[in-house]
Write a protein that binds this DNA or RNA. Structure first.
Lengths: 144, 144
DNA sequence: CGGTATCCTTGGTGATACTG
DNA sequence: CAGTATCACCAAGGATACCG
């Protein structure tokens, strides 16, 4: 059983690579910021003047997010020390979320990314259009 | 049918938000760079001295990637004008991929992200550890 | 070698309902 | 209000097999 198929070896390599990826901080960060809601939550938190928002305010500020996703996102962020969670045990429980300094810092990075995106958006869009054009033209022969 | 449930309104809001996201260049960029293989491919391409690699070289340089994913990634990148695809119609077909200037530029951004990740890795890790510790402690009560 | 088309498996995503 | 647990769904990811 020592010699598996090429596929098995590939799977093995994949596992090894996966392990390697675990060591790579960049992957973690990329995974974190690419999370659909993370960028938005951080943005909203940065946007708010007081810098802190309640759970439901967050939900209200982000249309289309489910409690599950909001909670999940918040917990991840909290776990990574990016946001702080403050519970005020009043009668109607009140929980405030705010960016930690580290979270703020991440926000800056996000800003950089945003800036890049805005700067190069046209170029990408142009490239995409011309590519699609070429592709459509190539495929059009069969359709007509 | 004018007044749907709250869920329906939520879905509606979600759709609207989704549409908004389409307009936001940042989302596109985030989606692109967060793609599991994009970052790696760009990195490998940047890493290579000649700046250009053949399809199978790429596959070899990235253990654990399937042809499907490699091709898909490459095509996306090409579509967005991030990499160039050069076909040399020799007898054994030869295709070289290289970063375009724009792709190079993206590589720089990726470097920034990488730098940030490496700089703050410890902090995040520390936060995570202490969070996990607290969580484990909280759950331990039932186990004992 | 380079690439595409197909099928299958996984898990992320979201809705619902229930608790404190 | 804040949050959790469960269920159902879809789409991305990957393996396989097959063309040029």
């Amino acid at each position: 059983m020592a010699t598996q198929t090429a596929a098995a070896r590939r799977a093995d390599a994949r596992a090894a690579y996966d392990a390697f990826l675990q060591e790579c901080p960049t992957s973690h960060l990329l995974a974190r910021i690419s999370d659909k809601w993370v960028g938005i939550v951080v943005g909203v938190l940065r946007d708010s003047e007081s810098g802190s928002l309640r759970y439901s305010d967050l939900g209200r500020a982000i249309p289309g997010v489910s409690q599950k996703m909001l909670t999940q996102t918040l917990r991840s962020l909290e776990r990574d020390g990016l946001v702080s969670r403050t519970v005020t045990p009043s009668v109607p429980a009140r929980v405030d979320y705010a960016l930690t300094p580290l979270g703020s810092n991440l926000g800056c990075l996000l800003s950089d990314v945003k800036r890049w995106a805005e700067n190069h958006f046209e170029e990408v869009h142009a490239a995409r259009t011309s590519y699609d054009e070429a592709t459509t033209a190539a495929g059009a022969g069969a359709g007509a």
